[in-house]
Design a protein around this nucleic acid. Sequence first.
DNA 1: TAAAAAAGTTGAACCAGTTTAACTTTTTTG
DNA 2: CAAAAAAGTTAAACTGGTTCAACTTTTTTA
Lengths: 196, 196
Amino acid sequence: MPGPEFELLSKHILKRVQLADEELNFMLSQFKLTRIKKRQFIVQPGFTAKHRNFVYSGAFRAYVVIDNGEDHTIQFAIEDWWITDYNSYYNSEPATLFVMALEDSVILQLSRENEDMLKQANHKYETFFRISAERAQAFHFRQLITNLTQPAEYRYENFLEKYPLIANRVPQYALASYLGMTTEYLSKLRNKRTAK
Amino acid sequence: MPGPEFELLSKHILKRVQLADEELNFMLSQFKLTRIKKRQFIVQPGFTAKHRNFVYSGAFRAYVVIDNGEDHTIQFAIEDWWITDYNSYYNSEPATLFVMALEDSVILQLSRENEDMLKQANHKYETFFRISAERAQAFHFRQLITNLTQPAEYRYENFLEKYPLIANRVPQYALASYLGMTTEYLSKLRNKRTAK
DNA sequence: TAAAAAAGTTGAACCAGTTTAACTTTTTTG
DNA sequence: CAAAAAAGTTAAACTGGTTCAACTTTTTTA
């Protein structure tokens, strides 16, 4: 009945918290399956991000556009990852990020209201979101360290090693801005590598 | 009875979650007051960070030392802030950061075991830690965006505006590495500003 | 409180990464 | 599937920020 989309999400949840069947099913029932076309936006500046999005299939990119028109990738998400503008989602304020589909995708969306309801309904649901936030916090913390301490070339090597699946799937300009360098420079780094 | 240290922490907690008197007191009773001398470490690489630390007074600096001996500030904490190596604390693995007192300080320490116990004991405690993690997540996310999108000079101006209390209280070399630049360059930026 | 250590300053030489621009390859779309 | 648009490549000129080195000021400690 639930379909493979909900099975992936179930696994994801049960890896983090133990739930009885009914508890799990109730939680799942709060998610809405949505199909997103390539290039479609699920978050846009000026509008409040109403959902937390679990990627079942496809890929997304979160980015900021600054005054001069440059865009900077802040996050990627592929299968089994979450994505949204968390500042907007948590604080119910207008987003500053774009979140765009890089491929045709299928996501499971949880609204802020449903999330709040779940958190209040059952201690275990709250635990799940607490663990998610802690992991995200630790993730961003490590990312900050890498950005601050490592030169461009190492950041690229490091990304290749940690996320080979993402590295070869997203457009190069998007990856370059994620790593804090220009497309041209990343192009050179890639060439240098394959030349070796 | 509790003293001003615990009053600051009480306010901090009650701002995030509603607790009855006994609930609050039980939570507070899990914290241990510790006095830390300037230059003393509360977290060191190789040792697991056993506590989450709430700063009542004083100031701390978290930093990484990389191969060539350079150090990079990752976080500051003054009154009413938390500090630890979260990767180490959450995952019970050896720390990679140093956390050092920049001044004689007073902190309230909560151990991982006591935190886990609190989270299990009462839904509201869990809510408190969930909110803390969400806020920290959003904070690091914004920081990542600033680092990625703004040039050195703006990052300094921005920091001055947002954290004037910290900017003039921590050593310049520590601030420079936090902002991702050398001491020498920050010195020049500061001079340029006062010259205006 | 003197002397040693740590922090901050200044300027010149340098370089990792950017910019600009012209070109090639890949992807999208009518 | 042809033409247009988007993405990626290459090379030369350039620059924001670093490095190095010598010096001054502030802080620490015996």
